[in-house]
Nucleic acid binder design. Structure first.
Lengths: 229, 229
DNA sequence: TCAAAAGTGTTAAAAATACACCCATGG
DNA sequence: CCATGGGTGTATTTTTAACACTTTTGA
């Protein structure tokens, strides 16, 4: 600590874009701000980075504190640092990108005393700071990445039907997919474990359930395999 | 400015991974550190972010100051913020990824009084801080991105031969490409403007020169076209 | 005239796309 | 028995991959 050279320092925060998927739509988690600036406005969950924690730890801590959420996938998105993005002064924010299974988290967020809620990403309210820009970038990232990495499974329950999976891709990519070709492609990767179970409580033929085989994916990945659409 | 809430703040730096390509190899720009910590060790160019400049401006300023370089492409790579990555205390660094045409910059960096030099990326010296990790990530990014965005042209002179272009891809992707298929693919995109000029001063048949058509690419991109390999 | 790299076409295999019907189940 | 979504096969087109010889030029 003897080399320290002091400059004035920007403040450092993390902000998280947490996506979830339900029957209707792709959702994003927002928090209503209790304090100025932008008091009462919806914003991405986030807050100041502590001196002794890593950036990712800060993101996890804020998600836990503000929304009681432990994301299935959390990765760095981009760092936003334009002077003027925060009226309090120079604040640089490292944005994170997270996916959760709404089946695990929707109830908590709804019943929680904190003012957190899931909004359709295509129909979100006006956001505080430059959070609209961050959300846009996160969506782009999701759309780009979902095609060549098996991220989507983090948005579904552990057991899912092929129709659910197809809908996921259709919602994220914003275009319809051919049912037969979709199934052929995915099953040919041999990353889905076919279970001896079917959906329950549907008023028509019940669809078979599948599970994503994370272990097998890790193996194939090492062997040079690339997931693609 | 009335809402300010004070936390202790990490220091904030930028570090730049600047790639260049010459006849032999893919090169990265390094600076020999004049000060502790890691005095005398090679490191990525970079430095502290000033309070009134954007992150990207900080990166450009440091490149200009430390190496006299104005990159053709500069984009954010990743933010490194683990506690302990810098012995001076908590320092978070926003890493940038830059490409330059070595034809423009090799002489300057070599004759410059500052201790800057180009090293083969496959054969770089031990680096200060966690800069080896940053370099590795930048290489990964380059390898990934070069296939679906026309980045490569930023590493070549404005007029280049197809053989030069092919070599670029071979060096970055670390695998040989078929000459005929490569040419077919690239020419079929119609992004290369065929010039009425050929190489000079070669002791064999001179190859035709081409220029990348940035305007046309922008158009096609808007129309939904995707560059690919 | 030789060395060195430029340039060029075709074929076969694989992957992507387009498309329509029968099946199982619960109400 | 009917409405609802589940499930399947094939033909066509497009893309990729593999492969070898002739041409031009300067030394």
């Amino acid at each position: 600590m003897s080399y320290t050279y002091e400059y004035p320092r920007p403040a450092l925060t993390v902000d998280c874009v947490v996506f979830g998927l339900d029957e209707e739509d792709l959702k994003v988690l927002l928090i209503r701000r209790a304090l100025e600036p932008f008091q009462g406005r919806w914003a991405l969950p986030g807050g100041f980075v502590h001196m002794e924690e890593s950036l990712e730890d800060a993101a996890r801590r804020e998600l836990q504190e503000e929304a009681g959420i432990r994301p299935g996938l959390l990765e760095q998105l981009y760092t936003f640092g334009d002077p003027g993005r925060d009226p309090r002064g120079r604040v640089v924010s490292v944005a994170y990108f997270a996916l959760v299974k709404l089946s695990d988290h929707r109830v908590q967020a709804a019943t929680d005393a904190r003012d957190a809620a899931w909004f359709s990403v295509w129909d979100a309210p006006r956001l505080a700071f430059d959070h609209a820009e961050i959300l846009t970038m996160a969506l782009q990232r999701l759309k780009g990445k979902v095609r060549y990495q098996p991220l989507g499974f983090e948005l579904l329950p552990p057991k899912f039907t092929l129709t659910q999976l197809q809908r996921l891709y259709e919602v994220i990519l914003e275009r319809p997919l051919d049912k037969r070709n979709f199934r052929k492609k995915l099953l040919s990767m041999e990353l889905l474990e076919e279970l001896d179970e079917v959906e329950q409580d549907v008023s028509h033929r019940a669809a078979r359930l599948y599970r994503f085989d994370h272990k097998k994916y890790k193996q194939l990945e090492k062997a040079g395999f690339n997931f693609e659409l």
